[in-house]
Write a protein that binds this DNA or RNA. Structure first.
Ligand SMILES: [Mn+2]
Ligand SMILES: [Mn+2]
Ligand SMILES: [Zn+2]
Ligand SMILES: [Zn+2]
Lengths: 135, 135
DNA sequence: TTTTCACTTTAGAATAATTATAAACTAAAA
DNA sequence: TTTTAGTTTATAATTATTCTAAAGTGAAAA
């Protein structure tokens, strides 16, 4: 992913490309593989990576703007912290509760044969499959 | 479910059958259908139902003991509050984000045809399917 | 260029859910 | 009865998150 794409992500999230936001965006989106994180873990990684530290509030604000723009997804994980996912396509997850680690599963690698009808007046928005792991 | 079963649930959770605990246990387990709740919602319902109010800490402690004993399950729901489920069998959920309501799906009503292998050294503990609803 | 002005960053305060604490209470056992 | 282990409760502490308000930034108007 090129710098121009980072700027696109920021613009499409109604965010001016400030130093802090570009740093966050590059950290999140300039990578080959999907990245799952909490605000806390992201903050720690940004502190290690970069010289200047970014205020927590800025990280929260930026992550939420990316989420609102559809550049990040929120994933439900047991526990109190909110997890985010740079993979915004329809997909599923392994969850390793030992390490609190999420691993992507391609949507095509799960085939559901039978599913109940949505209740009265409701429609199905999407189906999420979680595969919990043990050792 | 009879009183004797309530006492069994308490005993098997290493809980003495105090007035408060029996009241919580009866409220949770003496019902036909599955009950999904947060500690906050349970507290409100108990206040309405009963004359004496039970301290929040007691509700937290009791619910956690039931969970540890396997009489309650924790369900992952978007948001900050923890959801519990009186249905501890293997099953799935519809989730209506409009109303924050969970609806049980019997395990037999979902058939998965294809699933990826667990990663290196790990095994599959269980598979949870969430069907998100819209109007 | 200087000024303006909308947008940003940030430290710290506020909030909300949960957990810990410690004193008063209860009930089973001795 | 007395003892003892366990329990309830109000309140404090903790943790994740959101809010606030003051100081900073930079593009564009004057
Ligand atoms: Mn969660
Ligand atoms: Mn949750
Ligand atoms: Zn993912
Ligand atoms: Zn359920």
């Amino acid at each position: 992913m090129k710098k121009i794409d980072i700027l696109k992500k920021l613009r499409s999230s109604s965010l001016r490309p400030t130093k802090q936001r570009v740093e966050i965006a590059k950290f999140l989106f300039e990578r080959e593989k999907t990245f799952h994180f909490t605000v806390e873990s992201l903050n720690k990684l940004l502190i290690k990576k970069s010289t200047s530290k970014i205020a927590l509030a800025t990280i929260y604000n930026t992550v939420h703007a990316f989420k609102a723009a559809g550049h990040l997804n929120e994933v439900e994980v047991r526990g109190n912290k909110t997890y985010f996912d740079t993979n915004v396509s329809n997909h599923h997850h392994f969850y390793d509760s030992e390490t609190s680690e999420l691993i992507d599963i391609d949507a095509n690698d799960v085939v559901i044969q039978k599913i109940p009808k949505a209740p009265n007046g409701k429609k199905i928005k999407n189906v999420e499959v979680f595969i919990n792991l043990k050792n």
